[in-house]
Design a binder for these strands. Sequence first.
DNA 1: TCTGGGGTCCTAGGACCC
DNA 2: TCTGGGGTCCTAGGACCC
Length: 416
Amino acid sequence: MKAAIIMHIDVNSAYLSWSAVEALNQGCQVDLRNIPAVVGGDETKRHGIVLAKSIPAKKFKIKTGETLYSARKKCPNLTVVSPNYPLYLERSRALGKLLSRYTPTIQQFSIDEYFADFSGFERQYGEPMQFAYSLKDTIYKELGFTVNIGVSTNKLLAKMAGDFEKPNKVHSLFPNEIEQKLWVLPIEDLFMLGKKTAPKMRALGIKTIGDLANADTNLIKAKFKKQGVVLQNFANGNGDRLNSFAKQAQKGIGNSTTTAYDIKDRDSAYMVILSLVEMVAYRLRMNKKLCQIITISIKDNQFNSHSHQRQLAVSTDHTSTIYQQAKELFDELWTGIPLRHIGVRLGKLSAADYRQLSLLDQQVSSDKKLDQTLDDIRNRYGKNAVMRASFVNTNVDAMKGGTYNIIDYPMAKSKL
DNA sequence: TCTGGGGTCCTAGGACCC
DNA sequence: TCTGGGGTCCTAGGACCC
């Protein structure tokens, strides 16, 4: 049997590239990709972090996730542009559509990354590396942005290959290249080995991916538990469960928001919670799901986080039920300390087509009708077409949450 | 005007049952 | 009779991804 051919396609500086191309199309004279520039949130709303950076900005050691304040200190004439999420979503889908022309087996891994399975396509497309180069060029020609493509026999290796030199590059990382290309890299470069684990590894003398690959498994198991074993397998190029392209059911739906000002009173908190619940419950219903677990999370002005969750006796998709539970959970959780962030998450999802009817059915069906009516209006006229009276003349959005449009893909860990 | 938002998975401790 | 310990469920917190 011939080895699988898996490719990882990753848009270079996705948000920044997409905004740059859009600006050029609108007649802008400069290409943001060629100057020190970042996509960053709104500092007046306390969203002031770097979401994406250009290569010239990277030369100033600006990092994704750092504050704009800090980024400007490193590069005083930094250009900062606001994110355009609808654009990013559209570009993301355009890339997926292009890839689908070449293989039916693709999987979106994040807004700017796809895996594609080209196993058995050699006769049609030729030698995999040659094909990857032409695919990269086709993407650039048709969509105007550059990508990195990693080529290997499983998703883990393809992804690691895609992270080699950027931008606009194709790299292979086949099993027989692991020693030469993967093992020489610092431990920090391994997928899923983050900034908490890396220092612990280094303290044990494990400095490179090769060191981890060849470390004593019993030691790794003892120190890092299950996750350690997964990481050691990754270091050996074994993607394990990372190999499936099967679609996985979503486990939870959540929305959260950092408020422009600290929340100091219960009524303001309730307003934000209602706004979050409106969004999260709407998304739940659009996905034709019910939830059985509701989690509320808060972050105080000292950046300490806490959460509280509750399992319901009966699954629900009603805004009013979820809101009531969320308020109770919040009251149990909140000590009165000023808050900067509140989140609501729905878990233990099930299909909405088998509904367990309760004694409260009378009440429930009128709630259901209200939810349906509001959903219909929002789908037709936009999310702000209707709002509860309590939001009128306030500066709280009637529906909160960073992303209104939902990308339906399971996240990182479950796929690898 | 200093630190986002959306996810998944794992662990540890306590409750409860047998 | 005395009391150990395994299994499961629940919850809060944390690590990691983009």
